[in-house]
Every structure is written in structure tokens, then in C-alpha cells.
């Protein structure tokens, strides 16, 4: 069994590299498809053909885009992320602190959202059709139906403007004590928990309910197992594959999808960085961000696949 997992992991590592290259090319072509290049966009309204040509030469953007991209790819292979077109700073320096911020926010959110969502999903499945189940469903869908920017803005209005309990902006550079962390992260984490939990809750519930109607669980029921025991011992292990996949999909959102939270709480993370990079057609920066998102996503789903195989004896 361990051998199987090891070979799968090795296999996945190789394929992940290929996927990264594919994504990298796809992002490159997508970027070149967009009208405008860094020079025209930096000059903006004042871009005249001569000015653009001059700036392009000065920024060494005259080489064909594909050559510049391959050059960047070679650099990446040697661990060099390249230099941003927009402000001539090393990409690593631009990303550094912001990537750490993104990871912090993602980790705190995951630590709260995953246990919460799994508990709600499993208990809802346990008492399927009950008032509790219906309430969980309505609340979950009701909350996920509210656009993220509305949740975030409402939170700021209530907790920062009217009650004045929390700061409206999340200045990470002013965090020194545990109390500060609580204050700074409370609203971003709350908003994101609302956003990512729904998928986990709903999918967990659905997967467990489906497993409950399989013959061997019905068999266990006939043997007189209690409901919680039935769910936790028999149904849950068999539903684990879809559940971990739902968790992986939800958590991957926390890397690149938190643009609204970053904007409203002025939290410097890499989602905003990516949006900026696209806006200025800053290829090295776009690519590096895309690689980070892709790598994060691949890591999450590979873990999910491994867990799924481990959980199903027939797949081992």
C-alpha cells in the first residue's frame, strides 16, 4: 500500500511539473492575446507610437514575447523569478512579504473553516431531513448567496464603523500581540470562512448521505449500529474521497481568489498582486503568481487524491 502511494506521489510530482509548464504556456498565450503591452499601458493616455517604441527599447521589450517568456522559464528553472516590467524590482522582492500574508490568512481561515464545515456537513447528514438539516442548508446557501463584497462591507459597517470594536483596515505591519492578531484577522477570516465553507458543508453532506444508502451501510444498520456510529464508522470513510476533493477545491480559492477581501480590508496579499500584474501586462509577475496558484492547487488536489486512495480499501 505504501509503495502504491509512493509511486503515485512520484508520478504526480512528474506530472505536476508538466502541468506547471502547460499552465505557464497557457498564461503566456492568454497574456499576449490581451491588447496592449507594458509600454503602452504604463504610458496610458499619453502613449504615442514614438513614445511607446522608445520606452519599449529602454525596457528591453523589443525581443519577441515568446523569447522573453522562454528566457524567464529558463531563469525559473534556476530559481530566478525574473524582474518586474512595471517597476524594475525583482519579482521575488515584490512577492515575498505578500505571499507570506496570503499564506497566513489562508492558514487561519482553513484552521477555522475546515473543522466547522465538516462538523456541520456530517451532522446534517446524520439527521437528514430534520429541521436541523434544513436550517443548515438554508443558512449555508443563504450566506453563500450574498456576494463576498457585501459580507465584507457589512462586517466593516457593523464592527468598525458603528460598534468600533475592530479596525476597518488590516495593517499586518502593526501586529505584535495575540490580541492584535485577533483584531486584524477577525473580519477577513470571517468573510472568507463564509465564502469557502458552503462547498465543503454541502458536499460533505451529500457524499455521506449517498454512502448511507449503500448496501454495506444498510447491513450495518440491520446489525443495530447507532446512527452516529453508522455515519462515523461506516459511511464517512467511504465518502472521504469526494469530501477531501471538495475541501481541496475550496481551499485553493484562498490562494488566488481573495481579491475582494484584500481590497476591502487593504490586506496586501498576492491576489491583488496578480490583478495588478495583469493590468500592466507584467509577464514575469503574472507568470510567477500563476505558478504559485497552480502549485498550491496541485498540492491540494494531490493530497486529496492520496487521502481518497488511502480511505478506500478497494483503491489501494
Amino acid at each position: 500500500m505504501n509503495k502504491r502511494i509512493l509511486s503515485l506521489a512520484a508520478n504526480r510530482l512528474a506530472i505536476a511539473l508538466i502541468t506547471l509548464v502547460i499552465v505557464s504556456f497557457a498564461v503566456f498565450f492568454a497574456t499576449t492575446l490581451l491588447p496592449g503591452d507594458t509600454a503602452t499601458i504604463l504610458l496610458g493616455q499619453s502613449a504615442t507610437p514614438e513614445a511607446v517604441a522608445g520606452l519599449r527599447t529602454a525596457m528591453h521589450l523589443d525581443d519577441p514575447a515568446i523569447l522573453r517568456f522562454l528566457h524567464w522559464l529558463m531563469g525559473l528553472a534556476q530559481g530566478d523569478l525574473g524582474t518586474s516590467y512595471a517597476n524594475n524590482m525583482p519579482v521575488a522582492a515584490l512577492i515575498g512579504g505578500r505571499f507570506v500574508n496570503t499564506l497566513k490568512l489562508a492558514a487561519i481561515t482553513a484552521a477555522i473553516a475546515v473543522p466547522l464545515a465538516l462538523t456541520l456537513g456530517i451532522t446534517a447528514a446524520m439527521w437528514r431531513g430534520s429541521v436541523y438539516d434544513r436550517a443548515v442548508t438554508i443558512l449555508t446557501i443563504g450566506i453563500i448567496s450574498v456576494p463576498e463584497f457585501m459580507i465584507a462591507t457589512s462586517a466593516v459597517l457593523i464592527f468598525a464603523v458603528y460598534l468600533k470594536w475592530l479596525p476597518a483596515l488590516s495593517f499586518t505591519n502593526e501586529v505584535s500581540t495575540f490580541y492584535d492578531i485577533l483584531r486584524v484577522y477577525a473580519m477577513p477570516v470571517l468573510t472568507l470562512t463564509f465564502v469557502v465553507s458552503a462547498q465543503m458543508i454541502r458536499m460533505t453532506r451529500a457524499a455521506v448521505v449517498e454512502t448511507l444508502s449503500t448496501p454495506y451501510v444498510e447491513m450495518a444498520l440491520l446489525k443495530g449500529a447507532s446512527r452516529p456510529r453508522l455515519v462515523l464508522r461506516h459511511a464517512l470513510p467511504n465518502a472521504l474521497g469526494p469530501i477531501v476533493n471538495a475541501v481541496a477545491l475550496s481551499l485553493s480559492y484562498l490562494l488566488g481568489g481573495v481579491i475582494i477581501v484584500e481590497t476591502i480590508f487593504n490586506y496586501p496579499g498576492i491576489a491583488k498582486l496578480m490583478v495588478d500584474a495583469v493590468a500592466t501586462r507584467d509577464l514575469p509577475l503574472i507568470q510567477t503568481c500563476a505558478m504559485i496558484f497552480c502549485l498550491g492547487y496541485l498540492t491540494l488536489i494531490t493530497l486529496a487524491d492520496i487521502l481518497a486512495i488511502l480511505s478506500n480499501p478497494r483503491l489501494r
Binding site: I22, V275, A290, C294
Partner: peptide, 11 residues
């Protein structure tokens, strides 16, 4: 997976 890794705004 690759498709999912392309940011939806860029897409």
C-alpha cells in the same frame, strides 16, 4: 487542472 489554474479574471 491546468484550466482551473488560469485565473478567471485573466480568462
Amino acid at each position: 487542472d491546468a484550466l482551473n489554474s488560469i485565473p478567471s479574471k485573466l480568462f
